[in-house]
Amino acid sequence: MQRQGSVGGSAAIRVRVTGGLLLVAHLGLVAWLSLRPLDVPWVMPANLHPFATIRADLALGGLEAARRIGEGLGLLAPLGVLLPMAHGRLRASLVPSLMRTVAAGVLISLGIALLQTGVPGRVVDVDALLLNTAGVALAHLAVVPAGRFRLRRRAERRQHTAVRQEEPAQGRTPTIPRVGIAPWSDALPPSSP
């Protein structure tokens, strides 16, 4: 049974499979980037104060600040597109879809932060969690509504074309000859003598 609002038929399967494969590939890349040990002589303490690292990055100014903040925003940003793609719904409301995607982004980012506590050279940074979540939300808002709109229009066009092709060419409407009224003698039962 097909879920209401999902892409129809084989297109749904293609979108979901592609989204799922890209999602797994992206999460593998994120795990490799975030959870490999670093060989550093010393490690900064964990940052549990929101916006402290962001302020320090902004104090650097220029390209270095943009690079560091951009890395935080970009790390999990593809999840904002890949999670709805793996779900495969075309007719989903923007706010619930955004909330589901951001919640999944927060949980994945939090999971990475917790796993980093056991990796040498890595520390927990609450600002990374904030930037990762903001990246997921921005990517979702920038791509998913427009993408869903385009896919809906394409599916409607295909459906409309398929309906027109299925309609047989109509000829003349058949007519039924009129039947006259039967005489009363045929309608009455035979009389007995």
Results as ranks from 00 to 15, higher is better:
R100K: 12
P145Q: 04
I108K: 01
A142H: 01
L129D: 07
A56D: 09
L63N: 04
I54T: 02
P168S: 10
S191D: 05
L141A: 11
L138N: 00
G105A: 04
P37C: 07
G28D: 06
F51Q: 04
G171W: 09
T53R: 01
E64C: 00
D125A: 08
R178I: 11
A11S: 13
P96H: 09
R68W: 04
T101F: 13
T173D: 13
G111P: 10
E71T: 11
P145Y: 05
S185M: 14
D186L: 15
A56Y: 00
S93M: 02
R55S: 08
G19A: 03
N47R: 05
E71C: 09
L38K: 07
Q4K: 12
L27E: 09
V102M: 07
A103C: 10
G180V: 07
S185E: 15
R100F: 13
I13F: 14
S34K: 01
A128L: 12
Q165A: 15
L79K: 05
W184Q: 15
G62H: 06
F149P: 00
V81E: 01
L129V: 15
L94Q: 03
G180T: 12
H26T: 11
L60E: 13
S34Q: 13
L130M: 10
P37R: 12
P168C: 10
A182N: 09
A46K: 02
G88P: 04
H26I: 08
Q159Y: 09
Q170A: 14
P78V: 05
E64G: 01
A59N: 03
A103F: 06
R3Y: 11
V15W: 12
V179F: 13
R153K: 12
A46L: 03
D57A: 05
R14G: 14
Q116A: 13
L75V: 10
A155W: 04
G19M: 03
G121P: 05
G80H: 03
G80Q: 06
Q159A: 15
M1G: 14
V43D: 03
N47Q: 09
A31Q: 00
Q170K: 08
V17S: 13
L98Y: 11
I13C: 12
R67D: 06
A134S: 05
R100V: 15
G70C: 09
S6L: 01
E167S: 12
G70Y: 09
P78G: 08
S93W: 05
P96L: 12
A182P: 08
S185H: 15
L63Y: 05
G111E: 09
P190M: 08
G111D: 09
